[in-house]
Simulated scan of single mutants.
Amino acid sequence: MEMSAAGGGQGTAGRCQNSRTVKRRRWGGLRQQWKLLGLFEIDQHHEFYGLTCMMKEGLATAIQKSTDNTLTKPGPDFTMETFAGPVFASLRSSLGMSEQEYQQSLCSEHCYLQFISNSKSKADFFLTNDKHERINARYDIKGCEVSRWTDPAPEGSQIIVVLKDLNFEGQYITLDQQRPWLLRQVEIDTQFLRRLNVLDYSLLLAHQPLHQDERHQSLSFASSVNPGSTELSDFRVQNRRLLPNLKNPLHVIDGPEQRYFIGIIDIFTVYGFKKRLEHLWKRLRHPGRTFSTVSPQTYCLRLCQWVQDHTK
Rank of each mutant, 00 (worst) to 15 (best):
I264G: 03
L246Y: 13
T230E: 03
L199G: 05
S202Y: 04
P76N: 07
E231W: 08
G272W: 05
F48G: 01
E101A: 15
F261P: 04
F261L: 12
T72S: 12
C144P: 01
Q308R: 01
R236H: 11
V225D: 13
I42N: 04
N248Y: 07
C16H: 11
F115A: 12
P76C: 03
T21M: 13
E214A: 07
E2M: 05
G143L: 10
R148P: 04
V161Y: 01
N136Y: 06
A137H: 06
T70P: 04
S98C: 01
G143Q: 01
V252L: 15
R31C: 01
T230F: 10
F261T: 02
K122P: 07
L39Q: 13
L127R: 00
Q191A: 12
E169H: 03
V161C: 00
A222S: 03
M1C: 13
L30G: 04
A5R: 15
L37C: 13
E109V: 04
V270Q: 14
E133Q: 09
Y139M: 12
L246N: 11
Y139T: 09
S121L: 02
M55H: 08
E57P: 02
N239Y: 14
R184E: 13
L183T: 05
L303R: 00
H45L: 14
L95H: 08
H216F: 00
V294K: 05
N245G: 04
I188G: 10
I188M: 11
F125V: 03
W34T: 11
L232A: 13
A222Q: 02
E278T: 12
R184Q: 11
F192L: 07
P74V: 10
S108Y: 06
D124R: 15
N245R: 11
N136V: 15
F40M: 06
Y112W: 08
A153W: 04
K131N: 08
E145W: 00
T79R: 10
L242V: 03
D77E: 15
W306A: 01
G29A: 15
S223V: 07
S121F: 07
P154E: 08
Q17F: 14
H286D: 15
Q238A: 11
I141N: 00
Q217M: 12
I135K: 12
V161H: 05
Q64I: 13
F78E: 11
R241A: 01
V22A: 06
W281R: 07
G9T: 14
L196R: 12
C111A: 14
T12L: 13
I141Q: 05
Q258D: 01
V270L: 10
S295R: 02
W149C: 14
S223A: 01
R194F: 14
E214L: 01
T269F: 09
G38C: 03
L163H: 08
G170I: 00
N136F: 10
C16N: 14
L71Y: 07
F48K: 13
A89T: 12
E2S: 09
K65W: 10
R31Q: 12
S4P: 09
Q44P: 08
K131Y: 10
S93K: 14
R179Y: 05
C16A: 15
Q178C: 13
Q178I: 03
N136A: 09
E231K: 09
R138D: 04
P180I: 00
T190Q: 02
Y271R: 05
S19H: 09
I264E: 10
V225I: 11
N129H: 10
E214N: 02
R302I: 06
F115V: 09
P209Q: 00
F273A: 13
F48L: 13
F168K: 07
A137C: 00
G14P: 05
D234Y: 06
T67N: 12
R276H: 10
